[in-house]
């Protein structure tokens, strides 16, 4: 183990605990907009995240979904799990479809062809549909400033097609197209920083979230959907099937991703960075990695490399928080 690794008992995130919502869970709606009975694997973090996000979005929304797990688990003709208007067309074009919906609604309201109701628009796509094949359409829609919320459910690979690597797959993970082998550690590239790419479009709201922190996630989705203009939330979604992890550890693994600093929770509001949970000390990344079969093959040397990188990235994020501290005040 790296001598620099910090080992602390499970940290209770102070900020979150202080939130009113945590103490009043009954304020969360009992309405389910993603109906039970969908086809997700046991312990699917993505399905949980979608369910929570839907609670925050409410009923007055149109959801555009990309091809991928979310679509496949929730829609099979002649059934549907959706209790809100929902459209799926293709894999890489969700942001463009949302652009058309937004433009269509706005114009029809202006021309008196639809009642003047502020219907919200949310996109739901996987990391492949977002950071790889859909990045062009997403960039276009963010740049054009359409009023919609884009939710990327990041399970760190193309799961629907069988755990192929994406640009969001973390360094060292074994996937079916970047498998660990005698001469490979699996993924040899570092995870693409998609929230930073979204933020580079100077959109009003960017955030990261994880269903292990359900109230934080719902708060952010509520904020994102209320934002005028484009908003982007990147949601780490534990996938037991693809991560080779125990199905009863989904919540725990999500928490560890945050506690180790591998997936920090933060918001960028009008350019101002804000950590959602500030840990006095980060846990060693191996606490997180060792629970997942996809990292099982990693030697200590690689683990150290990952630890080092995580600390570096975390420091960069903290620097951005410090740099933008006085902004918009």
């Amino acid at each position: 183990m790296d001598k620099n690794a910090i080992s602390v008992p499970r940290v209770v995130p102070r900020k979150i605990k202080e939130k009113y919502a945590v103490q009043s869970p009954r304020l969360v709606t009992t309405d389910e907009f993603l109906a039970p009975g969908h086809r997700a694997c046991i312990g699917c973090g993505e399905a949980l995240a979608v369910r929570l996000a839907c609670k925050a979005l409410g009923a007055n929304v149109i959801i555009v979904t990309a091809t991928g797990c979310i679509e496949i688990i929730s829609s099979q003709l002649p059934w549907t799990s959706w209790r809100v208007p929902w459209i799926h067309t293709l894999f890489e074009n969700t942001a463009a479809v949302a652009s058309g919906i937004e433009a269509g609604l706005k114009t029809m309201i202006r021309k008196g062809k639809r009642p003047d109701k502020d219907v919200k628009i949310a996109v739901m796509a996987g990391d492949g549909g977002t950071s790889d094949i859909g990045i062009q359409a997403l960039s276009g829609a963010l740049e054009r400033g359409h009023d919609f919320l884009y939710l990327c459910f990041d399970n760190e690979a193309y799961m629907n097609t069988g755990i192929q690597r994406s640009s969001a797959t973390p360094f060292g993970a074994s996937t079916t197209t970047a498998p660990a082998g005698k001469k490979s550690i699996g993924q040899t590239t570092w995870k693409k920083n998609m929230p930073a790419i979204a933020a580079a479009h100077d959109i009003p709201y960017v955030a990261t979230a994880c269903p292990s922190y359900p109230f934080d996630l719902m708060d952010k989705v509520a904020k994102g959907i209320a934002t005028k203009g484009p908003a982007y939330i990147h949601i780490l979604s534990v996938c037991p099937t693809g991560w080779r992890s125990a199905t009863d550890l989904t919540i725990r693994i999500g928490s560890l991703a945050v506690e180790t600093g591998i997936f920090p929770l933060y918001e960028i509001e009008d350019g101002k960075y804000k950590l959602s949970i500030d840990f006095p000390k980060l846990r060693p990344v191996n606490d997180y990695l060792k629970l997942q079969g996809r990292f099982r093959h990693l030697a200590e040397e690689t683990l150290n490399e990952i630890q080092h990188r995580v600390e570096e990235e975390y420091a960069k994020l903290m620097a951005k928080v410090a740099l933008t501290k006085g902004l918009n005040e």
Partner: peptide, 9 residues
């Protein structure tokens, strides 16, 4: 794709 979205509403 944008035309699909527009037409769908």
């Amino acid at each position: 794709s944008a035309c699909l979205g527009a037409s769908a509403v």
